[in-house]
């Protein structure tokens, strides 16, 4: 799974969000390292929607502008959990080996 995809799914894990909300949340989660732009975001959202990992939750009009909210589907949550577990296992393995070889953490 690409990092941007992982971060978008993570941003939606706590509840539904609109496009700009996802961008700011992804920036926060990644500590400012990943800054999604609108085009990249909507390409990713389309792909995730086509794979049924996210779905449209609701729409709002705020100051004459349309906001569409997206939510994680059960399939998306399952995939995110599996990916998070995989990353955690890899990270744990890396950290434990670094300790064994006396590397700094």
């Amino acid at each position: 799974m690409q990092e941007a995809t992982f971060l978008i799914l993570t941003a939606l894990a706590q509840g539904s969000q609109h496009g700009y909300g996802i961008i700011t949340d992804v920036k926060d989660i990644s500590g400012g390292r990943v800054r999604l732009r609108a085009g990249t975001l909507y390409t990713a959202l389309e792909r995730l929607r086509a794979d049924a990992l996210i779905a449209v939750d609701r729409e709002e009009i705020v100051e004459t502008r349309l906001r569409r909210y997206y939510r994680l589907t059960p399939k998306g949550a399952e995939l995110l959990a599996a990916e998070a577990a995989r990353l955690q296992a890899n990270a744990a393995a890396a950290l434990s080996r670094l300790k064994l070889t006396g590397g700094t953490i």
């Binding site: 496009g19 700009y20 732009r37 502008r65």
Partner: peptide, 9 residues
Amino acid sequence: EILTVLMAS
């Protein structure tokens, strides 16, 4: 929808 995001960004 994308325009909203672009304008907000």
